[in-house]
Design a binder for these strands. Sequence first.
DNA 1: ATTATTTTTGCGGTTTCCCGCAATAAAATA
DNA 2: TATTTTATTGCGGGAAACCGCAAAAATAAT
Lengths: 242, 242
Amino acid sequence: MSTFLIVEDDSLHRNFLREVIIASDLECTQLIEAADGEEAIRLVHEYAPKGVIMDLQMPKMTGVQAAKAIWAENPSMPIVFWSNYDDEAYVRGITKIVPPCATYGYILKTSSKERLRRSIQCVFLEGQNVIDREIRGVQQRSLGRSEGLTESEYEALLDITLGLTDQAIADRRKISLRSVQGRLQQLYGKLGLIEMPLLNGGAAEFNSRTRAVAVALMSRLINEKSIESAELDYRRSTGKES
Amino acid sequence: MSTFLIVEDDSLHRNFLREVIIASDLECTQLIEAADGEEAIRLVHEYAPKGVIMDLQMPKMTGVQAAKAIWAENPSMPIVFWSNYDDEAYVRGITKIVPPCATYGYILKTSSKERLRRSIQCVFLEGQNVIDREIRGVQQRSLGRSEGLTESEYEALLDITLGLTDQAIADRRKISLRSVQGRLQQLYGKLGLIEMPLLNGGAAEFNSRTRAVAVALMSRLINEKSIESAELDYRRSTGKES
DNA sequence: ATTATTTTTGCGGTTTCCCGCAATAAAATA
DNA sequence: TATTTTATTGCGGGAAACCGCAAAAATAAT
């Protein structure tokens, strides 16, 4: 007997997933459902399902975080991520935490029912990793003329997005003040903030720091969820008040 | 004969809406659908439906913008917004553009089928305005100890979110540099940025400017979509390159 | 081991931001 | 109209941020 877990907050989508799984020729004898990450973790614990299929965007806890928790206990658990977005923030988050032995899939919600069904079969039956083509593009998408961001730069981006000062970042990352500024400089360059030739002799139009956040947000390098988890992360690493 | 228009990018939700409308005892003889704002505007033009029901979050164009365009030509068109979010950014956007003579509804996607059906009937049959209770809360929700933001302050918030410098804001809004800073000061206060007593004698932990953006984002005062439309707005008001 | 390449760091100077104090100007209220 | 309240502006100083230049340190490549 095999159990599968659906993690998805929208009930319409949950029903849809249920249908697809039933139609997938998995020998699925039990189907359990969770509406958010915490519940998912609990249910995995309790039922030890054969596989999980989950939305990335959920209340309380990102799918990425939930997956991390699940994999922490159960590194080989197959997980299919079914998401609306091709945000770099998500993809980066996942590829960073997927254990070598785990099989997983990343399917966009715009995919057809057929494609989703096939992908589910590939992951849960064949143990293959399946990543939608559109996503693979994101994995090494270059932003404008430059290549993607370094881990350091991405970190710095999150830090300024949180509103930290240079000094605070320096303390946190254990590097000098000037290094922080160096990384930011690098970041600004890659985000294409420095090219404006300042046509009119007037003052600068943009503040690099805040503009960087805006650009990153608009080009989906980061998103609201990633800000929230960065915030939690920061809180945990400093004052331990929840 | 009466026509209704569904505007929604997610096909599952579109099907759901179709079902509900059909079950609503509207004398609906024709049901047309659009997957994004532009298409919606076109279809309204072409079919002159009796009413529109639309998602707020869509590709290319926010529901708010689409509604604005529709109401510009057809100020009395009844529109039901069906949205995932109770973001202040959306609510503020809508209440700013709804014409006095228009009837509209704002229903959350978490509402039950029944409630949605009833709401649709109220709007399209009875010409009532229907706003989910959870939303009404947002309309004058107070942020922390303070009341909501002024229009000026909200504007300023968007401006710094875009990454504009104080000077650029001053130019744009036709006020002095110092006024901009005054408004920001006000904003920082309302966002609760100034209370940290700076426990350790160390340097400031947060940069007010960027921190304000982070806080606003996390408390849903603004969202990604509102940034994007603010960006367009700004571009249009200055260099007119698209 | 040696040579490239990248990162980190320091110095110094300019710009921008942050904000208290206080005088107008404008708007709301009595 | 008189009075309160609120918003705008100027002044001024201290704190961050921004950034070019260039040396030292750490990494990667040959």
